[in-house]
């Protein structure tokens, strides 16, 4: 990506100087020296016009192909990336590790490990921006977005909110602490949580009574969740959806919108009973029940 940037810089400077030099050259060469002076009739040149249509077009296609391949890579996290869950609110960041550690405005991660963020917002639109990692993604209320990065050097990196979010937008900053694997393991131990995210989710799953219907043996009123995450789900109208984070969130908050064949729509909505962070814990639990082949939604 930086190479593409430097290439573009070079290209831009080239055209800027080409055009400016031409303007200055023409300005001096063709300035009017007397009232009587007449320019010679210039003929319109078709080959000239075609050339300055064709050359920018070719440059444009070349740049597109290069940029598109980079963007595609940026949009697809590698398999097995470490998962971090992010909830933005005015004006702070809540971050959760799958092991249960929770942080505010700070994220500790190991170096050289791909990290995938699953993000949502409690209120308005925010944006998770770490300049050093060349990445930025809006964090929207009511849906999940994700981005991934792999830090290559230990150190402390700045985190900004880049989508304007109100009064203290400029205070919604933080740091990403990138640590060596040993330091990170030590940090995880020092901050060990009593429960992992999945365990918190399991506790919620029982407390909210989800387990009365979603039985493992299929005899309950709700579908079996074991081994389902990431697989295809066929709705009553025949629509096929992947059971990903967004699907699970919608199923918890608005189950009536996802009617399944063979099941009566008896599940109540849990809107207002669970926070965004708790929904993420429930998702972590359902994930821990085993997943099919992971279909990655970019």
């Amino acid at each position: 990506m930086d190479h593409l940037y430097f290439f573009l810089t070079g290209l831009t400077l080239f055209f800027t100087f080409l055009i400016f030099a031409t303007i200055f050259y023409f300005m001096i060469k063709y300035r009017r020296r007397s009232e009587q002076e007449r320019p010679p009739a210039t003929q319109q040149s078709l080959p000239l016009e075609i050339s300055w249509i064709a050359i920018p077009s070719l440059i444009c296609v070349f740049l597109f192909l290069w940029g598109a391949s980079l963007f595609f890579a940026a949009a697809r996290p590698p398999q097995g990336a470490m998962e971090i869950f992010v909830v933005g609110k005015q004006w702070m960041w809540h971050l959760q590790h799958p092991e249960g550690q929770r942080e505010i405005n700070q994220l500790h991660i190991p170096v050289d490990v791909p990290v995938r963020l699953t993000m949502t917002s409690e209120d308005v639109i925010h944006d998770f921006f770490v300049p050093a990692f060349r990445m930025k993604m809006d964090v929207l209320p009511g849906r999940y977005t994700s981005e991934w990065f792999q830090a290559t050097k230990p150190g402390s990196y700045h985190l900004f909110c880049a989508q304007y979010c109100g009064t203290l937008h400029s205070g919604m900053t933080g740091t990403i602490e990138v640590m060596t694997p040993t330091d990170y393991a030590q940090w995880l131990r020092d901050n060990a949580s009593t429960r992992s995210m999945a365990e918190s989710g399991q506790e919620l799953f029982t407390r909210l009574g989800c387990d009365t219907c979603h039985l493992a043996d299929g005899s309950g009123a709700g579908p079996v969740l074991q081994g389902r995450f990431g697989k295809q789900v066929t709705l009553r109208d025949g629509q096929n959806l992947a059971m990903d984070e967004a699907y699970t969130r919608q199923a918890i908050l608005d189950p009536a919108s996802l009617p399944l064949p063979n099941y009566r729509p008896v599940m109540p909505t849990f809107r207002g009973q669970v926070s965004e962070e708790q929904i993420l814990q429930l998702i972590a639990y359902i994930k821990s029940l085993g997943s099919g082949e992971r279909t990655q939604v970019p």
Binding site: M1, L4, M135, A162, Y164
Partner: peptide
């Protein structure tokens, strides 16, 4: 620059 989504990821906002 900004028309490139990959560069826009960095430069946006």
């Amino acid at each position: 620059f900004l028309a490139q989504p990959s560069i826009d990821l960095y430069l946006h906002d």
